[in-house]
């Protein structure tokens, strides 16, 4: 049922200051919210430039489209609401244009596709390539094993070969990653609880394993987030570009102690990483 207000003063126009006020207030609050968060954590990886560019691109384009869309909506409400004379012609009436309606429905869809999908592909493809493409041949390879509720970091040791590991060999206190001591390659392996050292300016290839449930390897400064799936050897890769300490978080709710599942990443020179590794106890 269509209701045509008979009042001479259209309701839409009377509400205009209120609508405008709400619009401005919302915009100010949103802007304040982003400002108070301080933006993203300071970037510390090479591919992260592309990730940040993608996020910025999406913010700007969707922000403009948001303003544009709501501006047009407000304009139309003010212009066409309130009386039968100004109301847009209904479908089927002699003044309605089906072609025009289709055009105005399809064009925004196509524009959105180009801006959103096309733009993200162009701006974000370098990050995608660096995250999922072939790892640089000289990558520093580390294995990270997630278990409730800690990160275990596994290095291949001087021989550069990861020892065989098996879930049935896991002993929380004595052999938390389930290394097979019968495998000669396992003897010089190194593992730590939550301590990861990476060289700056060199690609890091992280092998990911989960021992129990889903976990997620997340370092906001590296713009990296990758799930660990039990029974599946996953991976992620990035190149740290700044020295310092970073926190490795679990971004997949993995149980009651999820909030405590933290790791500590130190990015330093290759010499310092080598020195640190030489101070660690071998597995067996």
């Amino acid at each position: 049922m269509t209701v045509h207000p008979s009042s001479a003063a259209p309701a839409g126009r009377g509400s205009a200051p209120l609508l405008a006020g709400l619009f401005v207030a919302t915009a100010v609050l949103v802007a304040y919210g982003f400002w108070s968060l301080g933006g993203l954590p300071e970037l510390a990886s090479r591919h992260g430039v592309s990730i940040d560019a993608t996020i910025t691109y999406l913010f700007v384009t969707t922000g403009i489209l948001f303003l544009l869309g709501h501006g047009v909506l407000t304009l139309f409400v003010l212009r066409y609401a309130g009386s039968a004379e100004r109301a847009a012609p209904e479908r089927g009436s002699p003044h309605a244009s089906s072609k025009l309606e289709w055009r105005w429905a399809l064009v925004p869809v196509l524009v959105m596709c180009v801006i959103a999908e096309g733009g993200v592909l162009i701006v974000g493809m370098p990050a995608f390539a660096q995250l999922y493409g072939e790892a640089p041949p000289d990558s520093f390879v580390v294995e990270v094993v997630g278990k409730q509720f800690e990160w275990l970091v596994h290095y291949p040791g001087p021989d550069g070969v990861f020892g065989r590991s098996e879930a049935k060999l896991v002993n929380d206190a004595r052999n938390p990653i389930g290394l097979d001591k019968k495998d000669p390659a396992a003897k010089d392996d190194i593992y730590t609880r939550g301590q990861m050292h990476l060289p700056v300016g060199r690609g890091a290839l992280i092998r990911l394993r989960a021992l129990d449930v889903l976990h997620s390897f997340t370092v906001p400064q590296f713009r990296v987030k990758q799930d660990l799936i039990p029974g599946f050897l996953g991976r992620t890769q990035f190149e740290p570009t700044r020295t310092g300490q970073y926190e490795l978080a679990c971004a997949e709710l993995c149980g009651l102690g999820h909030y405590r599942m933290r790791g500590f990443i130190t990015v330093e020179s290759q010499e310092e990483v080598d020195q640190w590794l030489s101070e660690q106890e071998p597995a067996f």
Binding site: E150, T192, R193, G194, Q195, G263
Partner: peptide, 12 residues
């Protein structure tokens, strides 16, 4: 067997 260091690195 060697008595390994108890690695408490995950909780400072």
């Amino acid at each position: 067997p060697r008595r390994r260091k108890v690695d408490m690195g995950s909780d400072p």
